[in-house]
Design a binder for these strands. Sequence first.
DNA 1: TTGTATGCGTTATCAA
DNA 2: TTGATAACGCATACAA
Lengths: 351, 351
Amino acid sequence: MNGSGDGAARRPVTLDDVARAAGVSQPTASRVLNGSSRRVAPSYRERVLTAARELGYTPNLPAQAMARGTSRTIALVISLISDPYFSAMAAEIMKQAEAIGLHVSIAVTERLAERELDLVRELRGQQPRAIILAGTGYVEPPSEQALIDELQRYEETGGRVVLISRSDLPFETVDFDNHEGSRQLARELATLGYRNCLVLGSATPLLSMQQRVEGFVAGLAESGVTNTRVHQPGFSWVGAREYVLGLPDAEARELDLVFAVTDDMALGALAGLRERGLRVPEDVGVAGFDDISTLRDVVPRLTTVHVALNAVAQEAVYRATTTDTDLVRRTVPAYPVVRDSTPRVTTSRRR
Amino acid sequence: MNGSGDGAARRPVTLDDVARAAGVSQPTASRVLNGSSRRVAPSYRERVLTAARELGYTPNLPAQAMARGTSRTIALVISLISDPYFSAMAAEIMKQAEAIGLHVSIAVTERLAERELDLVRELRGQQPRAIILAGTGYVEPPSEQALIDELQRYEETGGRVVLISRSDLPFETVDFDNHEGSRQLARELATLGYRNCLVLGSATPLLSMQQRVEGFVAGLAESGVTNTRVHQPGFSWVGAREYVLGLPDAEARELDLVFAVTDDMALGALAGLRERGLRVPEDVGVAGFDDISTLRDVVPRLTTVHVALNAVAQEAVYRATTTDTDLVRRTVPAYPVVRDSTPRVTTSRRR
DNA sequence: TTGTATGCGTTATCAA
DNA sequence: TTGATAACGCATACAA
């Protein structure tokens, strides 16, 4: 349709081009194509629509954002996108946001606490309507106050801040019930006969992970199991595996259960146990936390704590877009799912 | 620091504010904070920097983009972010892009071919420097021409288009060597003694999946195995599992290998085989394609074809940012990785 | 080297 | 209802 030669970069089609082609003023074209109070004469309306279609007009979003003073973007900060937990979270948030016509801009901290502040700053520059911080939350973060300042400054200019899984900051928060989830799990496992448990927390001081550890220990204690060992290997598959491999033989032999604060770590522990010649679940049970769906093919199927990611995402996006100003900390339930990796302990068990 | 009351939305800090606070003109502030030819007197420079820091200035990216006529954003279109393959791809692309100071904006088609066109249109509005389309590519897409038109229009205005895994369109393309990868795999498996193979392709007509099927069949044929059956179940874990479950008993019993065009499907097949009471790999071998890293915990470890995602991402980002105008179709190697799911076939094998 | 004036594409305000 | 005109925040050409 566009007869001009290829190659040389041409100017994008603007609202002005459309208006001229339709023989109307530029504001009129704007009203037809993007405006809300659409009181435009049908004949004009038709001409504008036709011109826009023929020219292949696309609104310049940055320009719109600038003129309107607000964008249709939500900024999402996550730790790692290749982590199934976070990619699932991101997917849910994108779905929820798109459902209400919002675009999600993702930034990744690569698990570096310092990067978080830089990212927030950079994201602010995009003038998003809201910033959602998911899944970092260190117990004693290096630049906590600077981050708070930055976020508060953002809020002061009309932006909304929503935190997921880090209820330690003075902003809207959505969280799972980490403590209760692993407490319930611990009680169920105790009922199944587990008595010698190793809990793998996280060397990286993450608040939610700490809660999971505490909840699990508490649950066991309520069930009369008090000899639980807690260790904090590196916060990863590799960290958990290496920790398990480094366990003294005597200690490893005593174990009948390893609970790790994430499914990822639980699988690392599982790999380590097997490398040591221990059978799972025959010799040792393994349990995790998160209920990552892509793990359905792991054998044995992993006992874990399920968190309703979609509920979290929905709540987070809702909080990010509502105009309520009361600071809410909503907790989404988490509940244990016992599967093959933790069968009932029988007397025939090794120890 | 900012004494003013909380609550009421305030205006964000602009370059103008900084300039005023520093007692310089706005362009000078611009030159110090964002400009390239930084010929600003040290004293002024210092004052601007200080003012910016104290006020918490963040450049308004949309405004910058508009003034400069170009943004620092790359738009990425993928099928599904919760799919480990795509999330790994997205992670790599983000990493490569961030390394050169570019931001990545992600949009998801949810595997709907029609959505692709809408998304491209919407993304264009964000005025990205480049659009990368990853991992769709239907054999006979519904609105192919409209998509091509849209992308070409985008290119005409100076944008760059890079395709990943769909070398059927007239744009820069980065692809794995699907055909060669599965051909090599087939040859290795034939060497291991596999003779009765079921190939699971994709009911959704995806070009790269077709190539994987053809390569595998060709590799077997070269090795003298010509009785290969090819079927096209739904393109998912569920599809593969259901297909395997629906297989006639006689046919299932004959099998010694199932090759699926993705790891995801291979695992679905594996689940289905086990549900039928077949042992993997003792009775039937299973192989996939993609070498998804989060599958390291699957037992038996899956034989597959490895693709160098980071190489693909690097090449894609490079192509997206270079100013070369020659249409390049770069192919990244893919090579078989034989693991536990396809051991050498012994005479003690069931059939 | 610094400042003035202008333009980027859009929306919002206000007359007409 | 429609159209001139003024913002929005920033970068650049040009003048000082």
